[in-house]
Write a protein that binds this DNA or RNA. Structure first.
Lengths: 244, 244
DNA sequence: TCAAAAGTGTTCGATATACACCCATGC
DNA sequence: GCATGGGTGTATATCGAACACTTTTGA
């Protein structure tokens, strides 16, 4: 029996901590932003911003942990959330700064850590009620993300793909990213940000007409230096009645 | 500070084992089947069949663990595999039979276990080279699944949704489920099994024409008690060249 | 009066759906 | 010759893409 056979390794099954990390997207005029938190400045690596996350507790499942993280961060109780991938590489905590930060934060020696990544969406103008764990939270445009600890940059990359699948399965989530009343151009720019392509304005108006749960309002923009745009609103009742 | 506040709980972050469980689908004439293994008969619960799976090792990521499980089970080295969801509820190992089986199998007290579920596809007529861990493996029609341990029934349910997403993203996986040469009717019945709906025969032929990587062959069925059907084959080169 | 963005219609090709009859083979 | 399943074509609706000009408003 060789030392590296599977039989030799049977007594080294991992026992590991498990964390959740949340990629919360917001939308601001023309681009997607990610909500990042500041980790206590004790690093020389310059990686001060990271995804909000937490180890999960003994009696907690991952969904509950993710809700807890977002609630501590934003004060929001009800928020749509979607697990999208686990990240399990043994190398994901190889950076010594990251190891040191983990041990300082959780008062435990942590040799392995897997994380379950969640996707969520928020309105960017909502006030954040930041809990005691983090000092600041920042919306950061996805095109200008800093280098982050662990594999958080990769997690955001994959979240950007997942958001399309989510929108296709449940278009309602789009309207989590927009104000209650929004213009056709705002909705179009949101699609453009998510799908990373341009949409023809005329065709897009037809597309809105087909979304029977997006209702035109009488109200229009005011004090804009061009023809005022009509506002639309999302109708949840019609949305829930639609057949798919 | 209340005993049940998050601060109190900070010293009870989980350290847990992590497993992978693989849902391997096969296709047989008209329905999807799942590859199940027999767990050593020591239970009174009647839950003898389960998804193939394993705890993962200290230096192994989950993908590697899933490849290892399938390789031990089938002897196949190269197999398409897709992580699709983690299952983390503390209650998923509440059944006492399941707890006892875990401890007998892994020689460890296991109080919590999260699993990362994988989806894979195999040809149902392939000979299985079953490794030492399990005695038998069985293809079980998804319509006749037994009650299985842990949350394995739920995992299969979710895999049945995931397979559609996978097929849409990478249609190549369909042909993992079919023999090298197959008839239009076989491909159609595979779609019907995956999408759980009927397809019109004439329209389906047009759909095959549009799949430029599905080539008609000269060869036809022989010794069938009806008009012989043409065989088709999947052309991987054309498939890889296609623009999406 | 100008700059800036809003709003609007038609055409084309591709795709999805509905639908009914003849063909080849083994028994 | 008959039962069984294989193979074929047309018509309609919907959808996505391409494309240019007029309208409204504040500065």
């Amino acid at each position: 029996m060789q030392p590296n056979s599977i039989y030799y390794m049977e007594n080294t099954f991992i026992r590991t901590c498990v964390s959740v990390d949340c990629v919360v997207f917001g939308f601001d005029k023309s681009q997607l932003n990610v909500l990042l938190v500041q980790r206590n400045a004790m690093s020389s690596s310059g990686k001060e911003l990271k995804l909000p996350g937490s180890l999960i507790y003994q009696q907690e499942d991952a969904d509950t942990g993710a809700y807890r993280v977002l609630n501590e961060l934003t004060g929001i109780k009800k928020i749509a959330l979607r697990q999208f991938k686990s990240f399990t590489s043994p190398k994901r905590i190889s950076d010594s700064d990251d190891v040191a930060w983990l041990e300082a934060t959780y008062h435990n020696k942590i040799d392995r850590l897997i994380t379950i990544a969640y996707l969520s969406l928020g309105k960017i103008d909502r006030k954040l009620h930041i809990g005691p764990k983090y000092t600041t939270a920042t919306w950061c445009p996805v095109s200008q993300l800093p280098r982050m600890p662990f594999d958080h940059n990769q997690i955001v990359e994959e979240a950007l793909n997942e958001i399309r699948r989510w929108v296709e399965a449940e278009p309602v989530v789009l309207f989590e990213l927009l104000p209650v009343k929004f213009t056709a151009a705002e909705l179009r720019r949101l699609y453009e940000a998510i799908y990373h392509r341009k949409y023809d304005i005329r065709n897009f108006h037809k597309q809105i007409l087909r979304m029977e749960y997006v209702l035109p309002m009488e109200e229009k923009q005011e004090h804009v230096a061009h023809r005022a745009a009509r506002y639309y609103k999302f109708d949840r009742i019609i949305y829930n009645k639609r057949k798919i």
